[in-house]
Simulated scan of single mutants.
Amino acid sequence: MRGYKLIAAIVPKGAAGKVMDAAREAGAEGGTILMARGTGVHEARRVFGITVSSERELVLILVEPEKRDAILDAVVRAGRLDEPARGIAFVMAVEEVKGIVHHERQED
Rank of each mutant, 00 (worst) to 15 (best):
E95M: 09
A36Y: 01
K18G: 09
E66N: 08
K5M: 03
L6R: 09
R56V: 00
Y4F: 15
V97A: 12
K18W: 02
G79A: 09
G31P: 01
P65K: 13
A8W: 05
A8D: 08
P12Y: 04
E43D: 15
Y4E: 12
G14D: 11
M1G: 14
V47Y: 11
G99A: 12
H42R: 06
F90T: 12
A16Q: 06
V97T: 15
G49I: 04
M35L: 12
D21L: 07
R46T: 10
I7D: 08
R46E: 10
V97C: 06
E104K: 08
E57K: 03
I88Q: 13
H102K: 11
R80L: 05
D21G: 08
A36M: 00
D108N: 11
M35G: 15
V63D: 07
M92E: 15
V59N: 04
A16E: 04
E104M: 10
H42P: 01
G99M: 03
A28V: 10
A26V: 01
H42V: 10
V19T: 12
E107L: 13
V41L: 13
V47C: 04
G27S: 07
L6T: 08
E29I: 10
V63M: 07
R37D: 09
H103L: 12
G27L: 00
A22H: 09
L72T: 04
K18Q: 08
I61M: 12
P84F: 13
R45P: 00
E25V: 02
L34M: 14
K67V: 03
V52L: 11
